[in-house]
Amino acid sequence: MLNQVTSEGMFIDVKYPPSFPIVSHSFSGEVVEGDSVTLACSADANPAATYTWYKEHEANPLSKGPKLVFRSVQSSDSGKYFCAAENVLKRMTSGSILINVEYAPKLPRISVSASEIMEGISLTLSCSSDSNPAANYTWFKENEKTPQSSGQNLTITNIGRQHSGLYFCEAHNSRGSHKSAIHLTVAARNRNMTFKMMNITKLAAAALLLLSLLFVVSLWTRKKKPTDVKTESKEHVENIELDLCPEYENISTLRSFIASHEEREKQTNPT
């Protein structure tokens, strides 16, 4: 009988690149601000793969290792994440996973449509807040039980002194609420400004009347001149127009000017 001799075993170590990485997560439903969240990355590879974590649209890696841990996830952590598995043979990238962090509204910001709040104007207050899911808004006025408005904007038409007071904007969603306030002081309409506008209108009307009378005087002067001195008359009228000062403020000054002009005509062209 022949003797059988067995050789020593030989190990064959087959090298291969990482398989397509698989990402798993610790949450089973909604992610709320403050929760602990863990992402895990795995890929079959020989030699064993090393792992790097990234957030979409960010060039720099977040961390290295098979796990990415958020001990207290924040609203700023919302986004898509993926991992890369790599060994000496190849680098493979996983698909992305979305972390959608829900949170209560942040402190609302209130803006006002007018820089000066005076009686009679239309005023709009606007409220906005960062939140997930999107916030709903309600407006209240101090010491009044009924809401002033539901929605981002509160519009008050023909505002009066009775609308002065403290207004609150409350932003709320399924995760909570936050409130901001603004105090409105409605000022009486500026009577001096109204009076000035009336004066400007009167001055404009007086200026228009002055120009009309000057035009009539100019036509009358041209008509009075003989035909053979048309050129001299034209030059004389231009001189009159150059001498006119735009600061005539009333009709008596205009009458004095016309009388003076007629006297000069008589002296220049005696009949």
Score class of each variant (00 low, 15 high):
T124E: 04
F195M: 10
H57I: 06
Y81F: 08
S24K: 11
T155G: 03
G29I: 11
I22H: 05
W139R: 00
A207N: 07
N199M: 14
E119F: 03
L184F: 00
H163K: 06
L39N: 04
M1D: 12
T194D: 10
L166Q: 10
G29K: 13
S218L: 06
K64Q: 13
M198A: 14
N60K: 11
G34N: 14
P147K: 14
K145N: 14
P108L: 06
S126P: 02
I182Y: 01
S96F: 09
I251G: 02
V73I: 15
T38W: 09
E247K: 13
P246Q: 09
I110L: 07
D228W: 13
G79S: 09
H57D: 15
P226S: 06
V101I: 07
W220Q: 12
N136Q: 07
S164V: 13
S177I: 07
P17G: 15
L209Q: 08
R222P: 04
N192T: 14
G9P: 08
T124G: 01
V14A: 14
F195L: 11
S128N: 10
T231W: 07
E119S: 03
G151T: 04
V237K: 00
I156T: 02
E33P: 09
K145L: 13
N100D: 14
V32P: 02
G165A: 06
P18E: 04
S128K: 15
I258E: 03
A171Y: 01
M198E: 08
Y54A: 03
N132C: 08
L244S: 06
L208Y: 07
P21T: 10
K202D: 01
Q74N: 13
A206I: 01
L154P: 02
T93A: 09
K230M: 09
I97N: 03
A259P: 05
G79P: 01
M10W: 14
R222L: 13
R71Q: 12
A114L: 11
S115H: 15
N132F: 09
S113N: 05
K145M: 13
E249P: 04
K106W: 02
N143T: 05
S128I: 04
A49D: 04
V31F: 01
